[in-house]
Computed example of a mutant assay.
Amino acid sequence: MGIKVAITIDLPEWLLDKRPLEEFEVQFIKRQCNNEDEVAALASDADAVICGFEPFTRRVMESMSQCKIIAVEGTGYQGVDVRAATDLGIIVTNIPDYCTEEVSDHVMAMILAMNRRLFLCDRITKAGNWGIVKWRTMIGPVSRLRGQTLGIIGLGKIARALVPKAQGFGLNTIACDPYIEPGAADKLGVRLVDLNELLSQSDFVSIHALLTPENRHMLGPKEFQMMKPTAYLVNTARGGLIDEQALAAALSQGLIAGAALDVTDPEPPSLDNPLFQMDNVLITPHSAQFSEAAMAEMIRRPAEEIARVLQGSWPVAVVNPEVKARFEEKWRS
């Protein structure tokens, strides 16, 4: 009997590399699923699943009696109830490091662009404003980057890749992460502080936290009031970490100087989003992760992880390693 792999996102063929599964007799079934019922209908008899952010709740996974692995095509796995998957003996994998360099580069580019007012300079120059007499008052004050402070919320893989890049430009680095050992931060030359201190001391605040129900809108009206009026906010993590209405209000009131966002809530954003109308806001289309090399890795690794399971091996990037005993008991005993 062949292997059935359900793909719950309507990916174009170039965004899915099936070659790692060529040695198996695989039937791929693909459909965009937008709710629990659609996921359950597509994946109920699948041996493996490739997904994005679709809802894999306990109810859905209880209907997937043949499923051994859910391979998330990306870093975030908030659509999967990991505890339920573990209880049911289902391995969950993601791709935690495929775009570490790309995203950290993107953050640094955003910091430089905001600090040097590059996009505003571009617009006013194309409008005919050449010469310091014309543009000096239009771009506002510009501070020397060296010696300023970058505050990092969440000191994971991407943030750790960002630190030496920022330090190379002379930025002081502080971070807030309750889950990291102080010694790990010390090795990076990063001083650990609490969130309030980070917000009040930083000239740039870059968010690198996972989105959970507990930290949704972790930056809202109270937090923006703590920030310097000259500070900039960068978010390449998840849009839901920021209260966008509060951000728009803080920007319009001058509580902070500007923001650079690669993620919004929801996505895609509405074109009447007030942030789109602000000259001190830079928005990119959730593209921080993109490079040709990163994309090749992202589209290949889900199939590689599935192939490992089918071959009797253990996957590389397992979100729920505690599932192993239950998996072995259920599938290999």
Rank of each mutant, 00 (worst) to 15 (best):
G2W: 04
I9A: 13
D10F: 11
L11F: 11
P12A: 05
W14A: 15
D17S: 13
D17N: 15
K18C: 06
K18L: 07
L21R: 12
E22G: 10
E23Y: 09
F24Q: 13
V26P: 01
V26W: 09
Q27S: 09
I29Y: 09
R31Q: 13
R31H: 11
R31L: 13
N35G: 09
N35P: 04
N35A: 05
L42R: 01
D47L: 09
D47M: 08
F53N: 06
E54N: 14
P55F: 02
P55R: 00
T57H: 11
M61A: 11
E62A: 10
K68A: 05
Y77E: 05
Q78L: 09
G79I: 10
V80H: 01
A84E: 01
A85L: 07
A85W: 10
A85S: 10
D87P: 15
V92K: 14
D97I: 07
Y98I: 04
T100S: 06
T100G: 07
V103I: 15
V103D: 13
D105Q: 03
D105T: 02
D105R: 03
A109E: 03
I111V: 13
N115A: 11
R116I: 08
T125M: 15
K126R: 13
A127V: 00
G128L: 03
W130H: 08
W130G: 00
V133A: 14
I139E: 04
P141A: 15
R144W: 09
L150M: 08
I152S: 03
L155E: 07
K157S: 07
I158M: 12
A159Q: 01
R160D: 03
R160V: 00
A161F: 02
L162P: 00
V163K: 01
V163P: 01
A166M: 06
F169A: 03
N172G: 04
T173G: 08
I174N: 11
I180V: 12
P182N: 06
A184G: 05
D186K: 10
K187T: 08
L188H: 01
V190R: 01
V193Y: 00
D194C: 13
D194L: 12
D194H: 04
L198K: 02
L199E: 09
I207F: 11
I207N: 02
N215K: 09
R216T: 15
L219Q: 01
L219H: 05
G220M: 05
M226T: 06
A231Y: 01
A231G: 07
Y232E: 15
V234Y: 13
T236L: 02
G239Y: 13
E244D: 12
A248I: 03
L251C: 10
Q253A: 14
Q253C: 09
D262G: 13
P266H: 03
P266E: 01
E267M: 05
P268C: 06
L271C: 09
N273F: 04
P274Q: 06
P274W: 00
L275A: 06
F276V: 04
F276Y: 11
Q277H: 10
Q277M: 08
L282Y: 02
L282E: 00
P285T: 15
H286P: 10
Q289A: 06
F290A: 03
S291F: 13
A293H: 15
A294K: 06
M295F: 11
M295H: 02
M298W: 09
R300H: 13
R301C: 08
E305N: 05
A307W: 02
V309L: 00
Q311P: 00
W314D: 14
W314G: 10
W314P: 04
V318C: 08
N320I: 08
P321I: 07
P321C: 06
V323H: 03
R326W: 07
R326Y: 14
